[in-house]
Amino acid sequence: MKKLCAVLTIVALAVLIVAPVSASAVQPPLLSTNELVENSYKWDGQTVSFKGEVLQDLMVREDGTWMNLSDGNNTAMGVFVPKGVAMPVISRTEDYRTVGDIVLITGVFHRVCAQHEGETDIHAVSVTVLTPGSTKANPIRLGRVVWFVVLAGLLGLVMWLYYRKPGRGTEH
């Protein structure tokens, strides 16, 4: 019985010690572009998390860097990383032949950002690279090469017929 009491006391103390730490370390909700745009008034001014692939251009400006993060099919969000916020090295950005780095940012969502003349954006307070980018295979398919050869051959034949055959009809 004494042992049980001791264990329970230790568990209770552990909970008391750990609980406040966990509460303060709660990760802001991870949201998508659709969720943010559909419920823009709800999330306006809130700290949120956002995860996405870095699109082609990191646009460095005087007061910070703009990057666009794609989080799905034709949905992306502009993220502003102000000067002073640590920006990790982005190894790859999106390209036809490249999958860009997947980054996780936390920051403040603005329905209409006063600093950026009404833009819907997130001002990052932290940026973390979750998955480095990679090259993408866009292989040439043999079947398509065959199709091209067949079509080009037929085209050559038809063009030869077209340019050697005299025109029909009379010009009015």
């Binding site: 091209f148 079509l151 085209l155 063009m159 017929l161 077209y162 055959k165 025109g167 029909r168």
Partner: peptide, 17 residues
């Protein structure tokens, strides 16, 4: 190749002045 082929076939079979 496909588009030119369609175009030339149309022009060839219906050529007129």
């Amino acid at each position: 190749a496909l588009t030119l082929l369609v175009g030339y076939v149309l022009a060839l079979i219906s050529r007129t002045k």
